[in-house]
Amino acid sequence: MATKASRSAARLMMAPAVILLLGWMLVPLIMTLWFSFRVYLPLRGGDQGWAGFDNYTRFVSSSAFWPSIQTTLVIVLGVLAITVIFGTLIALLLDQPIWGQGIVRILVIAPFFVMPTVSALVWKNMFMDPINGLFSHISRFFGAEPVNWLSGRGIDWTINLYFTSFDLEVTMGVFSIIMIVSWQWLPFAALILLTAVQSLDSEQLEAAEMDGAPVHKRFWYIILPHLGRAITIVILIQTIFLLSIFAEIFVTTGGAFDTRTLSYLIFQRVLESQNIGLGSAGGVYAIILANIIAIFLMRIVGKNLD
């Protein structure tokens, strides 16, 4: 039904959005790329010429780089595991006939609407404070020593893979941030998975039930495959947001106690140490990393468009 005239009208209507986004993407991206090849220290002499790939090699060889990658991975994987597993359980539970389902849904979804600075501060002070926090009251009630949530030593794990083994130290700071961020993202996972569960054909389940399939088999062979796509989407979208969590670290630990993620490290290089070249090189790494994940997400979303 599209005529030539309506086609060109359509192009005209799309133009503002496309041009704005193109500018928003390209201008800063090109600037970041440019800075990443410069020695650029605004407070110490400004732009001092070409650096070649120095910033790129310096960024990855700095002692803060690998710990930041490890922290990023631990936080992202930890939050994903918690939100997907509990999100699935909550979705299955809320799908059952219960009294007051609407209200429970509202209670579960609420944390998603709390602004990140609020949830970080409330958790940090009112729950995790080692003296007055609610958790310390609970510990003392049971006669235990209050846990040093954000600044505690943490747990050492030795991870054995079949070809190698390494020590993984997860500080209490990282653990606490995983907790805070999981609380924020659990509603998102639960809500999307609930929507997916509700679209499951109940006849199939009833048939399986009549044939005597036990609960765990029904879950494993019918429900989980049905949820597969939704779980993938939850994982991909959350990963993109989790890679760039900022406020939760900014107001709780400020990057101390090994809670410095890759994006926080870049933030510190850029704004705190004002080393723009180095920070920009880090930014390029972060952009590449995010793009790798984005490609997978695009594939799934793209398929859905046809």
Partner: peptide, 22 residues
């Protein structure tokens, strides 16, 4: 479809990567 997906991809750009230019 390509334009829609491309628009989405701009959303994935990590903010910290373009902090200083902005």
């Amino acid at each position: 479809k390509d334009i829609l997906l491309w628009m989405l991809s701009t959303k994935m750009l990590p903010a910290v990567g373009v902090l200083y230019p902005i």
